[in-house]
Design a protein around this nucleic acid. Structure first.
Lengths: 234, 234
DNA sequence: AGAAGCGTTATTGTCGACAATAATGTCGAC
DNA sequence: GTCGACATTATTGTCGACAATAACGCTTCT
Protein backbone atom coordinates (compact mmCIF):
# COMPACT_ATOMS: atom_id res chain seq x y z
CA UNK A 1 0.00 0.00 0.00
CA UNK A 2 1.51 3.24 -1.09
CA UNK A 3 -0.58 5.56 1.05
CA UNK A 4 -2.91 8.39 0.46
CA UNK A 5 -1.90 10.45 3.48
CA UNK A 6 1.76 9.84 4.10
CA UNK A 7 1.95 10.84 7.75
CA UNK A 8 0.07 9.49 10.71
CA UNK A 9 -0.50 12.96 12.05
CA UNK A 10 -2.60 15.06 9.69
CA UNK A 11 -1.45 18.34 8.28
CA UNK A 12 -2.77 21.43 9.98
CA UNK A 13 -2.77 20.30 13.60
CA UNK A 14 -0.07 21.65 15.92
CA UNK A 15 3.14 19.71 15.27
CA UNK A 16 4.21 17.25 17.92
CA UNK A 17 7.13 18.39 20.05
CA UNK A 18 10.47 16.72 20.56
CA UNK A 19 9.63 15.82 24.13
CA UNK A 20 6.34 14.26 23.12
CA UNK A 21 8.01 12.09 20.51
CA UNK A 22 10.70 11.07 22.97
CA UNK A 23 8.07 10.11 25.51
CA UNK A 24 6.18 8.07 22.96
CA UNK A 25 9.31 6.16 22.10
CA UNK A 26 10.22 5.76 25.75
CA UNK A 27 6.78 4.28 26.43
CA UNK A 28 7.06 1.95 23.47
CA UNK A 29 10.35 0.68 24.82
CA UNK A 30 8.99 0.31 28.33
CA UNK A 31 5.97 -1.56 26.96
CA UNK A 32 8.28 -3.87 25.06
CA UNK A 33 6.80 -2.88 21.75
CA UNK A 34 10.26 -1.69 20.79
CA UNK A 35 12.80 -4.33 21.74
CA UNK A 36 16.49 -3.84 22.52
CA UNK A 37 18.57 -4.00 19.37
CA UNK A 38 15.78 -2.76 17.12
CA UNK A 39 16.83 -0.27 14.55
CA UNK A 40 15.43 3.26 14.68
CA UNK A 41 15.74 4.81 11.25
CA UNK A 42 15.46 8.55 11.15
CA UNK A 43 13.39 8.78 7.98
CA UNK A 44 11.03 6.14 9.25
CA UNK A 45 10.41 7.93 12.51
CA UNK A 46 10.08 11.24 10.69
CA UNK A 47 7.33 9.78 8.57
CA UNK A 48 5.54 8.16 11.49
CA UNK A 49 5.40 11.33 13.54
CA UNK A 50 5.00 13.66 10.58
CA UNK A 51 8.01 15.82 11.38
CA UNK A 52 11.31 16.59 9.74
CA UNK A 53 14.37 14.46 10.26
CA UNK A 54 16.04 17.27 12.16
CA UNK A 55 13.38 16.96 14.84
CA UNK A 56 13.87 13.20 15.03
CA UNK A 57 17.58 13.76 15.35
CA UNK A 58 17.00 15.84 18.47
CA UNK A 59 14.77 13.11 19.81
CA UNK A 60 17.41 10.47 19.27
CA UNK A 61 20.04 12.63 20.94
CA UNK A 62 17.80 13.03 23.97
CA UNK A 63 17.03 9.32 24.06
CA UNK A 64 20.71 8.52 23.91
CA UNK A 65 21.40 10.87 26.79
CA UNK A 66 18.88 8.94 28.85
CA UNK A 67 20.42 5.63 27.87
CA UNK A 68 17.45 4.37 25.89
CA UNK A 69 19.14 4.19 22.53
CA UNK A 70 22.66 3.75 21.36
CA UNK A 71 23.94 5.51 18.27
CA UNK A 72 27.00 4.73 16.25
CA UNK A 73 28.51 7.16 13.78
CA UNK A 74 27.12 6.75 10.28
CA UNK A 75 25.23 3.67 11.41
CA UNK A 76 22.21 5.10 13.11
CA UNK A 77 20.41 4.35 16.32
CA UNK A 78 19.17 1.16 17.92
CA UNK A 79 17.31 0.54 21.13
CA UNK A 80 19.97 0.06 23.78
CA UNK A 81 20.82 -3.44 24.95
CA UNK A 82 21.70 -3.18 28.62
CA UNK A 83 23.70 -5.96 30.19
CA UNK A 84 22.87 -7.45 33.56
CA UNK A 85 26.00 -5.91 35.01
CA UNK A 86 24.99 -2.51 33.75
CA UNK A 87 21.56 -3.04 35.25
CA UNK A 88 23.12 -3.68 38.64
CA UNK A 89 25.26 -0.56 38.32
CA UNK A 90 22.20 1.50 37.52
CA UNK A 91 20.22 0.19 40.48
CA UNK A 92 23.19 0.72 42.76
CA UNK A 93 23.63 4.34 41.73
CA UNK A 94 19.91 4.93 41.73
CA UNK A 95 19.65 3.89 45.37
CA UNK A 96 22.27 6.47 46.29
CA UNK A 97 20.69 9.24 44.24
CA UNK A 98 17.23 8.57 45.57
CA UNK A 99 18.46 8.69 49.13
CA UNK A 100 20.11 12.01 48.44
CA UNK A 101 16.89 13.29 46.92
CA UNK A 102 15.01 12.39 50.07
CA UNK A 103 17.62 14.06 52.25
CA UNK A 104 17.31 17.25 50.25
CA UNK A 105 13.54 17.00 50.11
CA UNK A 106 12.89 16.55 53.79
CA UNK A 107 13.95 20.14 54.44
CA UNK A 108 11.45 22.00 52.32
CA UNK A 109 8.44 19.74 52.25
CA UNK A 110 5.13 21.39 53.09
CA UNK A 111 1.55 20.20 53.43
CA UNK A 112 0.64 21.13 49.88
CA UNK A 113 3.46 19.14 48.34
CA UNK A 114 2.60 16.16 50.48
CA UNK A 115 -0.97 16.33 49.27
CA UNK A 116 0.20 16.40 45.68
CA UNK A 117 2.31 13.34 46.33
CA UNK A 118 -0.54 11.42 47.90
CA UNK A 119 -2.76 12.48 45.02
CA UNK A 120 -0.20 11.11 42.63
CA UNK A 121 -0.16 7.77 44.39
CA UNK A 122 -3.95 7.74 44.19
CA UNK A 123 -3.66 8.11 40.42
CA UNK A 124 -1.20 5.23 40.38
CA UNK A 125 -3.71 3.15 42.26
CA UNK A 126 -6.42 4.02 39.76
CA UNK A 127 -4.20 3.10 36.84
CA UNK A 128 -3.40 -0.20 38.50
CA UNK A 129 -7.06 -0.91 39.05
CA UNK A 130 -7.79 -0.15 35.40
CA UNK A 131 -4.74 -2.16 34.38
CA UNK A 132 -3.67 0.69 32.11
CA UNK A 133 -0.05 -0.31 31.44
CA UNK A 134 0.98 2.89 29.75
CA UNK A 135 -0.39 5.04 32.54
CA UNK A 136 1.14 2.77 35.17
CA UNK A 137 4.58 3.18 33.61
CA UNK A 138 4.28 6.93 33.28
CA UNK A 139 3.05 7.42 36.83
CA UNK A 140 5.56 5.06 38.42
CA UNK A 141 8.47 6.95 36.99
CA UNK A 142 6.67 10.23 37.54
CA UNK A 143 6.50 9.63 41.26
CA UNK A 144 10.24 9.42 41.66
CA UNK A 145 10.75 12.38 39.37
CA UNK A 146 8.22 14.36 41.39
CA UNK A 147 10.24 13.81 44.54
CA UNK A 148 13.37 15.08 42.83
CA UNK A 149 11.56 18.10 41.46
CA UNK A 150 10.12 18.99 44.84
CA UNK A 151 13.57 18.71 46.34
CA UNK A 152 14.50 21.67 44.19
CA UNK A 153 17.75 20.07 43.14
CA UNK A 154 18.18 20.40 39.39
CA UNK A 155 21.21 18.18 39.20
CA UNK A 156 19.56 15.35 41.08
CA UNK A 157 16.45 15.76 38.98
CA UNK A 158 18.49 15.32 35.82
CA UNK A 159 20.11 12.24 37.27
CA UNK A 160 16.75 10.82 38.17
CA UNK A 161 15.32 11.38 34.71
CA UNK A 162 18.26 9.47 33.32
CA UNK A 163 17.99 6.72 35.91
CA UNK A 164 14.23 6.33 35.55
CA UNK A 165 14.58 5.99 31.80
CA UNK A 166 17.28 3.42 32.14
CA UNK A 167 15.31 1.53 34.74
CA UNK A 168 12.35 1.38 32.38
CA UNK A 169 14.56 -0.14 29.73
CA UNK A 170 16.05 -2.62 32.15
CA UNK A 171 12.66 -3.63 33.40
CA UNK A 172 11.46 -4.15 29.86
CA UNK A 173 14.51 -6.23 29.06
CA UNK A 174 14.77 -8.40 32.15
CA UNK A 175 11.40 -8.91 33.74
CA UNK A 176 9.69 -12.14 32.86
CA UNK A 177 6.18 -11.49 34.04
CA UNK A 178 4.10 -8.85 32.35
CA UNK A 179 2.99 -7.02 35.42
CA UNK A 180 4.81 -3.83 36.14
CA UNK A 181 5.98 -3.80 39.70
CA UNK A 182 6.78 -0.29 40.95
CA UNK A 183 3.65 -0.47 43.00
CA UNK A 184 1.75 2.31 44.79
CA UNK A 185 1.81 0.56 48.15
CA UNK A 186 5.52 1.05 48.64
CA UNK A 187 5.26 4.59 47.39
CA UNK A 188 2.60 5.32 49.92
CA UNK A 189 4.58 3.78 52.73
CA UNK A 190 7.44 6.05 51.79
CA UNK A 191 5.15 9.05 51.92
CA UNK A 192 4.03 8.14 55.40
CA UNK A 193 7.61 8.32 56.62
CA UNK A 194 8.09 11.64 54.84
CA UNK A 195 4.92 12.93 56.44
CA UNK A 196 6.35 12.00 59.81
CA UNK A 197 9.58 13.75 58.94
CA UNK A 198 11.53 10.55 59.48
CA UNK A 199 14.31 10.69 56.91
CA UNK A 200 15.98 7.48 57.97
CA UNK A 201 12.86 5.39 57.63
CA UNK A 202 11.98 7.09 54.36
CA UNK A 203 15.39 6.29 52.94
CA UNK A 204 15.17 2.75 54.19
CA UNK A 205 11.78 2.35 52.57
CA UNK A 206 13.16 3.73 49.33
CA UNK A 207 16.11 1.36 49.30
CA UNK A 208 13.84 -1.54 50.08
CA UNK A 209 11.47 -0.51 47.32
CA UNK A 210 14.24 -0.32 44.75
CA UNK A 211 15.73 -3.61 45.85
CA UNK A 212 12.32 -5.14 45.50
CA UNK A 213 12.04 -3.94 41.93
CA UNK A 214 15.55 -5.16 41.16
CA UNK A 215 15.00 -8.55 42.70
CA UNK A 216 11.96 -9.23 40.56
CA UNK A 217 14.16 -9.11 37.50
CA UNK A 218 16.08 -12.11 36.24
CA UNK A 219 19.53 -10.57 36.24
CA UNK A 220 21.22 -13.80 37.24
CA UNK A 221 22.92 -16.41 35.09
CA UNK A 222 23.04 -15.63 31.40
CA UNK A 223 24.37 -12.11 30.89
CA UNK A 224 21.85 -11.29 28.22
CA UNK A 225 19.39 -13.50 26.54
CA UNK A 226 18.43 -13.33 22.91
CA UNK A 227 16.73 -10.09 22.15
CA UNK A 228 18.07 -8.75 18.89
CA UNK A 229 17.66 -10.48 15.61
CA UNK A 230 21.28 -11.54 15.43
CA UNK A 231 21.13 -12.96 18.94
CA UNK A 232 17.92 -14.78 18.21
CA UNK A 233 19.36 -16.47 15.14
CA UNK A 234 22.80 -17.04 16.62
CA UNK B 1 37.07 46.24 11.44
CA UNK B 2 35.11 44.19 9.01
CA UNK B 3 37.59 41.38 8.49
CA UNK B 4 39.50 39.96 5.64
CA UNK B 5 39.40 36.34 6.76
CA UNK B 6 36.21 35.80 8.64
CA UNK B 7 37.04 32.58 10.46
CA UNK B 8 39.86 31.78 12.82
CA UNK B 9 40.43 28.41 11.20
CA UNK B 10 41.53 28.72 7.60
CA UNK B 11 39.70 27.14 4.73
CA UNK B 12 41.08 23.88 3.45
CA UNK B 13 42.24 22.25 6.67
CA UNK B 14 40.19 19.40 8.07
CA UNK B 15 37.16 20.84 9.89
CA UNK B 16 37.20 20.70 13.66
CA UNK B 17 34.90 18.08 15.17
CA UNK B 18 32.05 18.54 17.57
CA UNK B 19 33.99 16.86 20.36
CA UNK B 20 37.01 19.06 19.82
CA UNK B 21 34.92 22.20 20.01
CA UNK B 22 33.19 20.94 23.12
CA UNK B 23 36.53 20.21 24.74
CA UNK B 24 37.85 23.64 23.87
CA UNK B 25 34.83 25.26 25.49
CA UNK B 26 35.08 22.95 28.47
CA UNK B 27 38.70 23.93 28.96
CA UNK B 28 37.86 27.61 28.64
CA UNK B 29 35.27 27.23 31.35
CA UNK B 30 37.62 25.25 33.58
CA UNK B 31 40.31 27.88 33.07
CA UNK B 32 37.81 30.58 34.02
CA UNK B 33 38.17 32.30 30.69
CA UNK B 34 34.48 31.69 30.22
CA UNK B 35 32.64 32.66 33.37
CA UNK B 36 29.29 31.33 34.61
CA UNK B 37 26.44 33.36 33.18
CA UNK B 38 28.28 34.32 30.03
CA UNK B 39 26.24 34.15 26.91
CA UNK B 40 27.20 31.68 24.19
CA UNK B 41 25.72 32.88 20.91
CA UNK B 42 25.54 30.25 18.22
CA UNK B 43 26.55 32.49 15.32
CA UNK B 44 29.48 33.84 17.31
CA UNK B 45 30.80 30.38 18.10
CA UNK B 46 30.21 29.25 14.54
CA UNK B 47 32.38 32.09 13.32
CA UNK B 48 35.10 31.49 15.87
CA UNK B 49 35.47 27.81 15.06
CA UNK B 50 34.74 28.18 11.37
CA UNK B 51 31.86 25.72 11.30
CA UNK B 52 28.16 25.88 10.63
CA UNK B 53 25.63 26.70 13.31
CA UNK B 54 24.28 23.18 13.13
CA UNK B 55 27.61 21.90 14.41
CA UNK B 56 27.62 24.44 17.23
CA UNK B 57 24.13 23.39 18.13
CA UNK B 58 25.34 19.83 18.65
CA UNK B 59 28.16 21.14 20.78
CA UNK B 60 25.80 23.12 22.97
CA UNK B 61 23.54 20.11 23.36
CA UNK B 62 26.48 18.01 24.50
CA UNK B 63 27.67 20.71 26.87
CA UNK B 64 24.23 20.97 28.35
CA UNK B 65 24.13 17.22 28.87
CA UNK B 66 27.34 17.50 30.88
CA UNK B 67 25.98 20.40 32.91
CA UNK B 68 28.39 22.99 31.59
CA UNK B 69 25.85 25.24 29.92
CA UNK B 70 22.20 25.92 30.44
CA UNK B 71 19.91 26.60 27.52
CA UNK B 72 16.51 28.19 27.58
CA UNK B 73 14.06 27.94 24.70
CA UNK B 74 14.43 30.77 22.22
CA UNK B 75 16.89 32.46 24.52
CA UNK B 76 20.10 30.63 23.83
CA UNK B 77 22.82 29.19 25.98
CA UNK B 78 24.85 30.55 28.87
CA UNK B 79 27.62 29.02 30.93
CA UNK B 80 25.88 27.24 33.80
CA UNK B 81 25.81 28.88 37.22
CA UNK B 82 26.01 26.08 39.77
CA UNK B 83 24.88 26.77 43.30
CA UNK B 84 26.82 25.65 46.34
CA UNK B 85 24.07 23.18 47.17
CA UNK B 86 24.28 21.70 43.71
CA UNK B 87 28.03 21.46 44.11
CA UNK B 88 27.60 19.44 47.28
CA UNK B 89 25.10 17.14 45.54
CA UNK B 90 27.55 16.57 42.74
CA UNK B 91 30.42 15.71 45.06
CA UNK B 92 28.18 13.45 47.08
CA UNK B 93 27.06 11.47 44.05
CA UNK B 94 30.52 11.48 42.60
CA UNK B 95 31.93 9.78 45.68
CA UNK B 96 29.42 6.98 45.28
CA UNK B 97 29.99 6.56 41.57
CA UNK B 98 33.76 6.54 41.92
CA UNK B 99 33.58 3.88 44.59
CA UNK B 100 31.43 1.78 42.34
CA UNK B 101 33.91 2.27 39.53
CA UNK B 102 36.70 0.97 41.72
CA UNK B 103 34.64 -2.01 42.80
CA UNK B 104 34.00 -2.93 39.18
CA UNK B 105 37.57 -2.21 38.20
CA UNK B 106 39.30 -4.34 40.79
CA UNK B 107 38.05 -7.47 39.09
CA UNK B 108 39.62 -7.08 35.68
CA UNK B 109 42.72 -5.06 36.29
CA UNK B 110 45.91 -6.42 34.80
CA UNK B 111 49.55 -5.36 34.82
CA UNK B 112 49.29 -3.51 31.53
CA UNK B 113 46.41 -1.36 32.66
CA UNK B 114 48.18 -0.58 35.88
CA UNK B 115 51.23 0.54 33.95
CA UNK B 116 49.06 2.81 31.81
CA UNK B 117 47.61 4.32 34.94
CA UNK B 118 50.99 4.97 36.50
CA UNK B 119 52.15 6.44 33.20
CA UNK B 120 49.18 8.75 33.24
CA UNK B 121 50.04 9.96 36.72
CA UNK B 122 53.57 10.56 35.53
CA UNK B 123 52.18 12.82 32.82
CA UNK B 124 50.18 14.64 35.47
CA UNK B 125 53.33 15.16 37.44
CA UNK B 126 55.10 16.55 34.41
CA UNK B 127 52.25 18.95 33.68
CA UNK B 128 52.34 20.10 37.27
CA UNK B 129 56.06 20.67 37.09
CA UNK B 130 55.64 22.70 33.92
CA UNK B 131 52.66 24.48 35.45
CA UNK B 132 50.68 23.85 32.28
CA UNK B 133 47.17 24.62 33.53
CA UNK B 134 45.34 23.32 30.50
CA UNK B 135 47.17 20.04 30.54
CA UNK B 136 46.74 19.70 34.29
CA UNK B 137 42.99 20.08 33.94
CA UNK B 138 42.75 17.62 31.07
CA UNK B 139 44.86 14.99 32.79
CA UNK B 140 43.20 15.32 36.18
CA UNK B 141 39.79 14.60 34.74
CA UNK B 142 41.28 12.07 32.39
CA UNK B 143 42.61 9.96 35.24
CA UNK B 144 39.18 9.41 36.73
CA UNK B 145 37.69 8.78 33.31
CA UNK B 146 40.43 6.28 32.60
CA UNK B 147 39.49 4.29 35.68
CA UNK B 148 35.88 4.18 34.53
CA UNK B 149 36.85 3.12 31.05
CA UNK B 150 39.09 0.34 32.32
CA UNK B 151 36.27 -0.88 34.51
CA UNK B 152 34.42 -1.66 31.30
CA UNK B 153 31.22 -0.16 32.60
CA UNK B 154 29.68 2.09 29.99
CA UNK B 155 27.01 3.48 32.24
CA UNK B 156 29.45 4.44 34.96
CA UNK B 157 31.76 5.94 32.37
CA UNK B 158 28.96 8.17 31.12
CA UNK B 159 28.20 9.22 34.66
CA UNK B 160 31.83 10.02 35.27
CA UNK B 161 32.12 12.14 32.15
CA UNK B 162 29.14 14.13 33.35
CA UNK B 163 30.48 14.39 36.89
CA UNK B 164 33.99 15.34 35.85
CA UNK B 165 32.63 18.12 33.64
CA UNK B 166 30.45 19.43 36.40
CA UNK B 167 33.30 19.24 38.88
CA UNK B 168 35.44 21.32 36.54
CA UNK B 169 32.76 23.97 36.41
CA UNK B 170 32.33 23.93 40.17
CA UNK B 171 36.04 24.19 40.73
CA UNK B 172 36.22 27.12 38.35
CA UNK B 173 33.35 28.83 40.11
CA UNK B 174 34.20 28.23 43.73
CA UNK B 175 37.94 27.89 44.20
CA UNK B 176 39.71 31.03 45.31
CA UNK B 177 43.30 30.15 44.65
CA UNK B 178 44.52 29.61 41.13
CA UNK B 179 46.23 26.33 41.66
CA UNK B 180 44.31 23.34 40.49
CA UNK B 181 44.18 20.76 43.20
CA UNK B 182 43.38 17.30 41.86
CA UNK B 183 46.98 16.39 42.48
CA UNK B 184 48.97 13.40 41.25
CA UNK B 185 50.07 12.36 44.73
CA UNK B 186 46.64 11.26 45.79
CA UNK B 187 46.12 9.58 42.44
CA UNK B 188 49.30 7.62 42.89
CA UNK B 189 48.38 6.60 46.42
CA UNK B 190 45.12 5.27 45.05
CA UNK B 191 46.99 3.28 42.44
CA UNK B 192 49.16 1.70 45.08
CA UNK B 193 46.09 0.31 46.79
CA UNK B 194 44.74 -0.92 43.48
CA UNK B 195 48.05 -2.58 42.77
CA UNK B 196 47.77 -4.39 46.10
CA UNK B 197 44.24 -5.42 45.22
CA UNK B 198 42.89 -3.71 48.32
CA UNK B 199 39.51 -2.37 47.28
CA UNK B 200 38.59 -0.98 50.67
CA UNK B 201 41.71 1.11 50.97
CA UNK B 202 41.42 2.24 47.37
CA UNK B 203 37.86 3.37 47.92
CA UNK B 204 38.84 5.11 51.11
CA UNK B 205 41.65 6.92 49.33
CA UNK B 206 39.26 7.96 46.59
CA UNK B 207 36.71 9.34 49.03
CA UNK B 208 39.42 11.16 50.89
CA UNK B 209 40.77 12.56 47.66
CA UNK B 210 37.39 13.88 46.58
CA UNK B 211 36.67 15.33 50.00
CA UNK B 212 40.00 17.05 49.83
CA UNK B 213 39.09 18.66 46.52
CA UNK B 214 35.67 19.65 47.82
CA UNK B 215 37.05 21.13 51.01
CA UNK B 216 39.40 23.40 49.17
CA UNK B 217 36.42 25.17 47.64
CA UNK B 218 34.60 27.96 49.39
CA UNK B 219 31.14 26.45 49.34
CA UNK B 220 30.23 27.81 52.75
CA UNK B 221 28.28 30.90 53.67
CA UNK B 222 26.97 32.83 50.70
CA UNK B 223 25.16 30.41 48.39
CA UNK B 224 26.69 31.93 45.29
CA UNK B 225 28.80 34.96 44.98
CA UNK B 226 28.32 37.57 42.34
CA UNK B 227 29.15 36.21 38.96
CA UNK B 228 26.44 37.39 36.61
CA UNK B 229 25.53 41.01 36.14
CA UNK B 230 22.27 40.74 37.97
CA UNK B 231 23.98 39.20 40.99
CA UNK B 232 26.68 41.82 40.97
CA UNK B 233 24.21 44.70 41.01
CA UNK B 234 21.75 42.94 43.31
C1' DA C 1 30.50 -23.09 -5.34
C1' DG C 2 32.92 -19.52 -2.76
C1' DA C 3 35.09 -15.23 -2.34
C1' DA C 4 36.61 -10.85 -3.66
C1' DG C 5 35.85 -6.58 -6.07
C1' DC C 6 32.67 -3.30 -7.76
C1' DG C 7 28.41 -0.70 -8.57
C1' DT C 8 23.97 0.41 -6.56
C1' DT C 9 21.00 1.69 -2.99
C1' DA C 10 19.72 3.01 1.46
C1' DT C 11 20.82 5.81 5.40
C1' DT C 12 23.08 9.14 8.03
C1' DG C 13 25.72 13.71 8.23
C1' DT C 14 26.03 18.56 6.90
C1' DC C 15 24.85 22.87 5.35
C1' DG C 16 22.60 27.24 3.99
C1' DA C 17 18.31 29.61 3.80
C1' DC C 18 14.02 30.83 5.76
C1' DA C 19 10.56 31.26 9.71
C1' DA C 20 9.46 32.25 14.44
C1' DT C 21 10.46 34.36 18.54
C1' DA C 22 12.29 37.45 21.89
C1' DA C 23 15.06 41.65 22.87
C1' DT C 24 15.83 46.34 21.73
C1' DG C 25 15.02 50.93 20.34
C1' DT C 26 11.73 54.57 18.90
C1' DC C 27 7.86 57.27 18.70
C1' DG C 28 3.77 59.23 20.48
C1' DA C 29 0.22 60.20 24.03
C1' DC C 30 -0.89 61.78 28.38
C1' DG D 1 9.02 63.48 31.40
C1' DT D 2 7.37 58.81 31.73
C1' DC D 3 4.85 55.00 30.29
C1' DG D 4 3.03 52.15 26.81
C1' DA D 5 2.49 50.53 22.14
C1' DC D 6 4.75 49.63 17.94
C1' DA D 7 8.51 48.87 14.62
C1' DT D 8 13.10 47.15 14.13
C1' DT D 9 16.78 44.21 14.95
C1' DA D 10 19.16 40.29 16.67
C1' DT D 11 19.00 35.49 17.76
C1' DT D 12 17.29 31.01 17.92
C1' DG D 13 14.31 27.26 15.72
C1' DT D 14 13.05 24.59 11.62
C1' DC D 15 13.21 22.67 7.30
C1' DG D 16 14.43 20.71 2.75
C1' DA D 17 18.16 19.61 -0.23
C1' DC D 18 22.65 17.88 -1.01
C1' DA D 19 27.04 15.27 0.33
C1' DA D 20 29.31 11.46 2.55
C1' DT D 21 29.27 7.08 4.15
C1' DA D 22 28.14 2.38 4.90
C1' DA D 23 25.28 -1.71 3.68
C1' DC D 24 23.71 -4.66 0.05
C1' DG D 25 23.58 -7.33 -4.15
C1' DC D 26 25.67 -8.45 -8.33
C1' DT D 27 29.06 -10.04 -11.33
C1' DT D 28 33.25 -12.36 -12.22
C1' DC D 29 37.25 -15.07 -11.51
C1' DT D 30 39.41 -19.08 -9.59
Amino acid sequence: MKSQGNAVRSAQMAPITVDEIAERIWLSIAERRLRPGMRLKEAELAEIFGVSRARIRQVLTALERDGLVKTEANKGAIVAEPSAEEARDIFHIRREVEQRVLARLIGHLDAEKLLDLFAHVAKERAANAANDQREIIKLSGGFHLMLAEMAGADFLWGMMRDLVSRTSLITAAFRDSDKYNCGPDEHEELLMHLKNGDLQKAQHAMVHHLEHVENELKLSGNPELARSLKDALL
